[in-house]
C-alpha cells in the first residue's frame, strides 16, 4: 500500500562525547562503534539512520538493548539533540524549531508513552490522563470530560480518583496510554511501552492498541526488543544494531528475507506460520481444487483449511480475482526454518 510519509529521518547521527561533531566524519570514513570507543572515547549512538515512516500505520523499531532504539525515538521530539542529520515531520524541520515551536509541537503533534509509565505519583488517574491537556492550558471542565472519555476507552472506568501507586503495572500503562491519546496528537511515540509488563498483560495491551488503532489511525512509532511483539503489531519494522539500520520492511519481508545473520538469529524462534500469509508463498497460475483463500490469510489458518477441504492446493484471491496458487508443500517450505548458516548442524531425531 502506498501511503504518505509522516516522519522522515535522513542521515541521522548521534555521537555521545565532548566532540561528537568531528566524530561524524570518522564514522563516515568507516569507524565502528568499538573503534570509536577505543580510539576517541566517543560513543556511537546512531549511525546514519534513514527511515521514512508512513502516516497512519504502526512503525516498529526494534533491536536489542544498546542498539540505539530508545535514543532514536527521543530524537523525534528532540528530547535528545542529534549530532547531525535531518528530521522532518509533515514536511516541517523539527531540528529548526525554536523552543516555543518545539513546545507547541510536543503539546499538539506528538505524544509519548514510556517504558516505566512515568506517571505523576501525586496526581489521581484522571489528572494524570489530563496532564497533557493541562499543559496546553485546556480549561478544567473540558479537560475532565476528555480525560474521562479516554479512561473509559482504555477500560479504567471507576479508577478515576485512584493514585498510580494503587494500580497494577498494566493499569498504570493504560493510564500512560490514555494520557498520550488525550492530547489528540497525530503521532504516538511508544518507548518499550509494554516491555515492563508480564506476557499476558502485554498481549492484552497489544490488543487494546490494535483496537484503538483500527479506529484512530494514528501514526504510531513503537520501540521494542521483542520480535513477537513487533510482528504482532507492526505494519513496518526497522531493525537496528549498534545504532545503524540493518533492515527495514514489512513483517513478512523480514521473516522471508532476513538481511543478515543478526536478523536471522532474531527470527529463528518465531512462529512463522503466524506471520506469513498465503500471498507470501504463492506461485503464479491457478488450479481447480475448488478452494479459494484470501491473500492475507496467515498460514496457521490456511493449512488446516486445506486439510479440512482435503485438497493440496488452493487459489489465492484478492478483490475477487485469482492472483496465484499455493500448495501445502509451499506452505510447509515457508514455515520451515531458513537454511541454517555454516557451522550449524541440522539434526534429525
Amino acid at each position: 500500500m502506498v501511503s504518505d510519509i509522516k516522519v522522515s529521518i535522513k542521515n541521522l547521527y548521534k555521537i555521545f562525547g565532548s566532540n561528537g561533531k568531528d566524530m561524524v566524519q570518522k564514522v563516515e570514513e568507516g569507524a565502528t562503534k568499538a573503534s570509536l570507543q577505543a580510539e576517541y572515547k566517543h560513543v556511537l549512538g546512531l549511525n546514519n539512520v534513514n527511515i521514512d515512516i508512513p502516516a497512519r500505520r504502526i512503525q516498529v523499531i526494534m533491536g536489542l538493548s544498546g542498539s540505539g532504539k530508545s535514543t532514536l525515538i527521543r530524537h523525534l521530539n528532540r528530547l535528545i539533540e542529534p549530532t547531525s542529520g535531518e528530521i522532518m515531520v509533515d514536511g516541517e524541520d523539527v531540528l529548526a524549531m525554536s523552543d516555543v515551536e518545539l513546545r507547541n509541537f510536543r503539546r499538539n503533534k506528538m505524544s509519548m508513552v514510556f517504558q516505566k509509565f512515568a506517571l505523576l505519583p501525586h496526581r489521581t488517574v484522571i489528572d494524570n490522563v489530563g496532564y497533557g491537556l493541562k499543559i496546553k492550558g485546556t480549561d478544567k471542565a473540558e479537560m475532565n470530560e476528555r480525560s474521562q472519555k479516554w479512561i473509559d476507552r482504555v477500560g479504567l472506568s471507576g479508577f478515576e480518583n485512584n493514585y498510580p501507586a494503587q494500580l497494577s503495572g498494566g493499569m498504570q500503562q493504560r493510564v500512560g496510554l490514555a494520557r498520550a491519546l488525550a492530547t489528540d496528537a497525530e503521532i504516538l511515540l511508544m518507548d518499550e511501552a509494554f516491555s515492563a509488563l508480564d506476557p499476558l498483560i502485554r498481549n492484552d495491551m497489544q490488543d487494546i492498541l490494535l483496537d484503538l488503532q483500527e479506529e484512530l489511525h494514528k501514526t504510531i512509532i513503537f520501540i521494542t526488543h521483542d520480535l513477537d511483539e513487533a510482528l504482532n503489531i507492526g505494519d513496518n519494522i526497522v531493525i537496528l544494531r549498534d545504532g545503524a539500520v540493518i533492515q527495514q520492511g514489512s513483517p513478512q519481508e523480514i521473516v522471508l528475507d532476513p538481511a543478515d545473520d543478526y536478523v536471522r538469529d532474531f527470527i529463528k524462534d518465531i512462529n512463522r506460520a503466524r506471520v506469513l500469509d498465503v500471498s507470501s508463498v504463492m506461485k503464479t497460475g491457478s488450479n481447480d481444487s475448488g478452494l479459494e483463500l484470501a491473500s492475507d490469510v496467515i498460514l496457521e489458518l490456511a493449512m488446516p483449511a486445506m486439510i479440512k477441504a482435503d485438497v493440496t492446493s488452493a487459489n489465492v484471491m484478492r478483490d475477487g480475482e485469482v492472483i496465484g496458487v499455493v500448495t501445502l508443500a509451499d506452505m510447509i517450505g515457508g514455515i520451515a526454518r531458513p537454511e541454517s548458516h555454516e557451522g550449524e548442524q541440522v539434526t534429525y531425531r
Binding site: N77, L79, L102, R106, N108, F114, F117, L120, Y131
Partner: peptide, 18 residues
C-alpha cells in the same frame, strides 16, 4: 526527582515553570 517523570513532562511540552 524521577528522571522518567521529568522526561514525560518534557515530552508533553512543559515549560520550565510547569
Amino acid at each position: 526527582v524521577d528522571k522518567e517523570v521529568l522526561e514525560a513532562a518534557e515530552a508533553f511540552g512543559s515549560s520550565y515553570r510547569q
